[in-house]
Write a protein that binds this DNA or RNA. Structure first.
Lengths: 164, 164
DNA sequence: TATTGTTATACTCTATAACTATA
DNA sequence: TATAGTTATAGAGTATAACAATA
């Protein structure tokens, strides 16, 4: 029979399986959002700090810049983001999140928080933050610039009311 | 500023980022294998226990059965697997791993083991098995039948020599 | 000359539908 | 009638190439 060490050897399989579960439970939540899961990542990235260029967004999400054009087209039509000219470089466009975009982001974030806890339910309550912490440290190692929007932060940037 | 709790909130992002790193470092390893990452998963699944049907494999990998046909075509051409008629159901085919397939599986598994440790290097040595364990428990929750091939087991099944 | 963003095109991947053979 | 597997076709998603504007 296989030992626990051997059972836990296939890290890639485990990662993929967990991500697949995550996608299943979050799919419904993100279905209404223009751009889906990617649209959500664009919102979280664009809502924090300096409005990023399209190219910076594309690199951060790991997609081609042409894909980013189509994605932002949808999100702009949906009223979630705006393309503003970069005063320092007239080739580039800065992606800013609209009020509606911030509202949508907050809604989705709250729903995702619940969905994530559902995903982690098989673990003991004290194990859940451990997994989050370890995963996050690995993830930021791969992308050290990463910072995350919180609802309150997003609202500060737009000068918006609470609601979140 | 964001607190650690807030920073670690986006589980989906962290999972995806880590999986992306994993794919980067394993890409080269799996490039030569017919079927790539999926071919590897087919090998690990088919090398353990009863040779599965194509449909069972498709469900386990989360792909359409037509995709499985093409995937197995490539792997059969590459000499890694064989399609054998199921004696109990002449519609179905049992996928068995050839000797060459087992050898390839062992090679890839050994290389992946190293690659995984590279991925986990940012963590302290005692944290690495913790992450593996937590991820694996979540993953098996989603797919409770999961068992994993070990090289020695695969060799037992084919009556093969060690080499791994 | 290189870079940002857009558009058109081609390619890859995946799913749908129709078929054969079994059950 | 339903299921396992195959094949052909259509669709979605993605990348490549060419372009305009700017650096």
């Amino acid at each position: 029979m296989t030992t626990p060490q051997q059972l836990e050897a296939d890290l890639g399989w485990a990662l993929l399986a967990v991500l697949r579960s995550y996608r299943e439970i979050s799919e419904a939540l993100l279905a209404g959002l223009p751009g889906g899961p990617r649209g959500y990542h664009v919102l979280t990235t664009a809502a924090t700090g300096e409005p990023p260029s399209q190219l910076a967004l594309a690199r951060k999400l790991g997609v081609d810049r042409t894909v980013m054009t189509y994605l932002l087209d949808d999100m702009e039509k949906g009223g979630l983001i705006e393309r503003r000219p970069d005063p320092a470089d007239r080739r580039a466009r800065r992606i800013t999140v609209t009020e509606a975009g911030n509202a949508a982001l907050c809604d989705v974030q709250r729903a995702l928080r619940t969905a994530e806890e559902t995903l982690l339910e098989p673990l003991d309550p004290e194990e859940r933050p451990v997994l989050r912490h370890l995963l996050y440290r690995l993830a930021t190692r791969a992308d050290p610039q990463r910072t995350e929007t919180t609802c309150t932060e997003a609202e500060k940037l737009t000068g918006d009311a609470p609601a979140c």
